[in-house]
């Protein structure tokens, strides 16, 4: 599967309160959450954004709370994937569990500029920068995580196990 979109460059330590402020956690409706995704941190975001866009962030993306509302909001906002130098661990799990593709790539996090067009091969983790022609690698998901993805998320994986 190829994911294609425009890069939104974000900084380091983007926390879950920045991704979806707690004042909106009185709902778990993906569309309502998406409407407020990143609004404090990136005021231009809810306006200037096109479906398919890609977040490219520094270290420790998604640090802070365990709210699954964070990856849900990003996914429902139409972001096709998140690339970061590193991810906070709970966010990392949550993203796999709800089916938001994420890629750890220090090279891409360093080199990609805001607005670059990217194409990501989700199976191999290869990231192509269509604007500059550069290619970056990302660490492949551990085999067990790939099993979860193949099953279509953790819930399907568990259902199958219960049967």
């Amino acid at each position: 599967m190829e994911l294609k979109g425009r890069a939104w460059k974000l900084g380091a330590d983007v926390d879950t309160d920045a991704i979806i402020p707690a004042r909106y956690l009185t709902t778990s409706d993906p569309d309502e959450l998406a409407a407020h995704c990143m609004e404090d941190a990136e005021p231009s975001f809810p306006v200037g954004f096109k479906a398919g866009d890609i977040f490219v962030a520094g270290k420790n993306f998604g640090c802070g709370s365990s709210r699954e509302h964070a990856p849900i909001a990003i996914k429902a906002a139409g972001v096709s994937c998140v690339i970061a130098r590193t991810f906070a661990r709970i966010f990392y799990r949550n993203a796999f569990n709800i089916g938001l593709p994420i890629f750890e790539s220090p090279e891409a996090a360093e080199d990609v500029r805001d607005g670059d067009e990217l194409a990501v091969d989700a199976d191999t983790g290869t990231i192509k920068n269509l604007t500059t022609g550069r290619i970056y690698k990302s660490a492949p998901a551990p085999p067990f995580m790939q099993e979860i993805i193949a099953a279509g998320g953790l819930i399907n994986y568990v259902s199958a196990k219960l049967k």
């Binding site: 802070g64 709370s65 365990s66 709210r67 699954e68 990856p71 709970i90 799990r93 949550n94 569990n97 709800i98 998320g153 953790l154 819930i155 994986y157 568990v158 196990k161 219960l162």
Partner: peptide
């Protein structure tokens, strides 16, 4: 809840996860 790690004070292993993980654990 991310601060589930608090119970390490008692010499337990405890950690925070997301809702889907908790759903799986409630079942299994």
């Amino acid at each position: 809840d991310s601060h589930t790690c608090t119970y390490g004070a008692l010499g337990a292993f405890s950690t925070g996860m997301g809702s889907t993980d908790i759903a799986a654990a409630m079942a299994l």
